Simulated assay, not measured.
Amino acid sequence: MRSMSKIVDVVAGTLIAADGRFLLGSRPEGKPYAGYWEFPGGKIEPGETPFEALRREFHEELGITVEAATPWLTKVHVYEHATVRLRFYRVWSWTGEFEMREGQDIAWQVPGELTVGPMLPANGPILKALELPAVLAITCAHEIGEDVILASLAEAPPAAVLVREPGYQMEELARFVREVSARVRPAGGKVFANADPAWLEGLPIDGVHLSEARLMAMDARPDFEWVGASVHGREAKEKAEALGADYLLLGHVKPTPTHPDSAPLGWDGFECRLAEGCPLPVYALGGLSSADLADAYAHGAQGVALMRGAWQ
Rank of each mutant, 00 (worst) to 15 (best):
K239L: 10
R308M: 00
R21Q: 12
I138N: 06
E80Q: 11
Y247A: 08
H209E: 13
P279G: 07
R87Y: 06
N123P: 04
E97S: 13
G112Y: 14
P28N: 02
L150T: 03
S152L: 02
V253H: 00
G269S: 12
E238L: 15
T70R: 05
R2A: 07
T256K: 00
P111Q: 13
E57Y: 01
A263W: 03
Y247C: 13
M1V: 04
P71V: 08
Y297T: 01
P125I: 12
P222C: 11
E67W: 04
E165K: 13
V180T: 13
A195K: 02
P40V: 06
E48K: 10
R55K: 06
E29F: 04
G41R: 08
L248Y: 10
M307S: 12
M100F: 02
G124R: 13
V282K: 10
H232T: 06
T139H: 09
A154K: 14
P222W: 10
Q302S: 06
L243G: 11
P255C: 00
Q104C: 00
M119K: 04
L265C: 06
T49Q: 15
L73M: 12
I44Q: 10
K43E: 14
C140K: 13
G287L: 00
I138M: 13
I44Y: 06
E171F: 00
S289M: 02
T74K: 14
A107K: 08
E29M: 04
C272F: 15
L200C: 14
H259D: 06
A242F: 05
E52M: 13
A160K: 04
I149S: 04
R2P: 15
V135L: 10
I144E: 02
V177G: 04
E146R: 14
I144G: 01
P197K: 09
A68H: 00
G233L: 05
P121D: 07
A193G: 01
P32I: 02
G207H: 11
I126Q: 15
E52R: 14
L162R: 05
V135D: 02
Y297I: 01
L15W: 09
A242C: 07
Y79P: 02
A129I: 13
E165D: 12
L86N: 09
I149V: 13
G251A: 07
L62Y: 08
A275I: 11
E271S: 15
G228A: 14
E99M: 05
K254C: 00
E146F: 01
S93F: 02
R178W: 00
A193E: 03
T74E: 15
L153T: 13
F270Q: 07
L280G: 10
A107H: 10
A296T: 09
F270R: 13
A12Y: 04
K43T: 12
E60T: 14
E172G: 12
L210D: 07
R234L: 12
V10C: 09
L86D: 08
G13F: 03
S290P: 01
K6I: 03
P279Y: 05
Q169G: 15
A174L: 01
R221V: 08
Y89G: 06
H77R: 03
P118M: 09
W72A: 11
E179S: 11
L250K: 03
A107R: 11
A160D: 03
A220C: 07
P40A: 14
Y297W: 15
L114F: 00
W37Y: 03
G244E: 07
